[in-house]
Computed example of a mutant assay.
Amino acid sequence: MRLDVRHLDLVLTIAEAGSLRRAAARLHLTQPAVTAQLKRIEQHLGGELFVRLPDGMLPTRAGALFVRDAARIRVDLAGLTHTARRALQDDAEAPVRVGGVPAQQFSLLIKALGALLPARGTTSRTVRRTDTISALLASCELDVAVLRRFPGTALTLPSGVAHRVLLTEPIFVGVSLGHRLAAAGRIALGDLADDDWVMPHPDDSGMNDYVADTCRRTGFEQRVAHVTDEAHVAFSLTAAGDAVCVLYPLGSARESLATLTLTGDPLFRELVLAWRTDSPVVPVVDVLCAHIAKGYLALVEDDDVYAQWWRRGGAESALP
C-alpha cells in the first residue's frame, strides 16, 4: 500500500468531522467503508491515528502530526494545481513565438499570423543557424520558424516538429553598374570564372560549400576575396567593382548594383516552414502557407527582374 491524496483526505475529514459517521456523510461513503479504509491506513503506518471514544474520534499524538502535515500537503497540492492551471492558461493565451532566417517569408509569416490569429499576437527573433532554430523548436522556445535548405545539406528537425517547403527560390548575382556584364541581364555562371566573390561566413546551412561546388561543376574554382555577414558591406564592395555577390531575388538597398539572373538557374535554395505539432499554428497551417504565398507573389510583381524571371517559366520550379 502507498499513501495517496485520498488517504490524506479521509484522515483530515475524520479529524475535522470528529466522528466516523459525520466523516462518512461528508465523503459520501458508508461508515463501514470509512472504518475499513482508516484501519488499512493505520496498519500501513503501524499504529492508531485516532482514539475511539463513545462520542467520536480524537487524534492520537501521531494522528495530530499526521493531520498537521496532511493539511499542509493538501494546501501545497492546491497551490500546485493553481500554478499548473495558470501556466496552461498563460500558454493558451501567449503570443505565437516565431523565429527563422531573415528571408521575406519571415515577415510574411508574422503578417499572416496577425491576420489568422489576431487575438494571440506574435513575438519573433531572427536566427541564421539551422541547428539553433531546431534547438529552439525542440525546447518550445519557438512555435514556428522559417528555415533555409541548400542542395546537399540535410535538414534535421527534432521530433514533434513538422515542416513544409514554402518555395524554391533562385539565387541571382550582383555586379557593379560598371561591370562588363552589368547590362547583360542574364548570364551563364561560367561568365564569372575570372571574378572575385564576396560571401558570408560559412555556417551550418551549407550555402558556401554549395556555391563553391556549383562553380566547380561549371568548370572553375570560385575565388572568394571578401567575407562578411553584413549585406550593406557586401553590396558596397560589389558596387565598387571589387567582387561579385550572391543575391536573393527580393531585397532592398540594391540600387547601386546590377542584378543578373543565371542561365539554367544553377543556384537556388528552399525556404521551409517548420512548426511544433502542439503549437497554436497547427489548425491554420494550410491557410497560413496560402497567405505567405499570396504575399510573396505580390512582392514578386513589384520587382522587375524577379517578375521577368517568374513569367519566363520560373514559377514552375519555384512553387511547391
Rank of each mutant, 00 (worst) to 15 (best):
His7Cys: 15
Thr83Ala: 12
Trp309Leu: 03
Val198Asn: 04
Tyr296Thr: 03
Leu109Gly: 10
Met1Trp: 12
Val5Tyr: 07
Asp302Ala: 15
Thr35Asp: 02
Val127Gly: 09
Arg186Thr: 08
Leu88Lys: 10
Leu147Glu: 04
Arg52Glu: 13
Gly100Asp: 00
Ala70Tyr: 10
Arg125Val: 14
Leu189Val: 03
Ser159Cys: 03
Leu262Thr: 00
Leu181Gly: 00
Asp55Lys: 15
Leu88Tyr: 06
Asp213Asn: 11
Leu237His: 08
Glu169Ile: 02
Arg129Ile: 01
Val233Glu: 09
Pro320Met: 09
Asp194Ser: 15
Arg21Tyr: 09
Gly56Arg: 09
Glu230Asn: 06
Asp204Gln: 01
Arg186Gln: 09
Val211His: 07
Tyr296Leu: 13
Leu136Thr: 00
Glu48Arg: 15
Ala33Tyr: 01
Arg149Tyr: 02
Asp131Asn: 13
Ala24Ser: 09
Gly190His: 06
Phe268Ala: 08
Ala84Pro: 00
Asn208Lys: 10
Glu169Trp: 05
Arg216Glu: 07
Ser107Cys: 05
Ile110His: 10
Ala138Thr: 03
His232Ala: 07
Asp9Gly: 08
Arg125His: 04
Val227Asn: 07
Glu270Ser: 12
Gly314Glu: 02
Leu8Ala: 10
Arg312Thr: 11
Gly46His: 05
Val211Phe: 11
Ala298Val: 12
Asp191Val: 03
His44Leu: 14
Leu271His: 13
Ala243Tyr: 10
Met57Ile: 03
Ala71Trp: 11
Ala318Pro: 08
Ala36Gly: 00
Val305His: 11
Ile14Lys: 03
Ser159Pro: 01
Arg74Asp: 14
Gln308Cys: 09
Cys140Pro: 03
Ala71Cys: 10
Leu142Trp: 08
Leu20Thr: 10
Leu20His: 14
Arg74Leu: 12
Asp194Lys: 12
Asp196Arg: 12
Arg74Phe: 07
Val51Thr: 13
Arg217Phe: 01
Leu77Val: 08
Glu270Gly: 03
His163Ile: 00
Ser236Ala: 15
Arg128Thr: 15
Pro283Phe: 15
Ala17Gly: 11
Thr214Tyr: 01
Tyr248Arg: 08
Trp310Thr: 05
Ala315Cys: 07
Leu45Asn: 11
Arg269Phe: 05
Asp196Ile: 02
Arg180Pro: 01
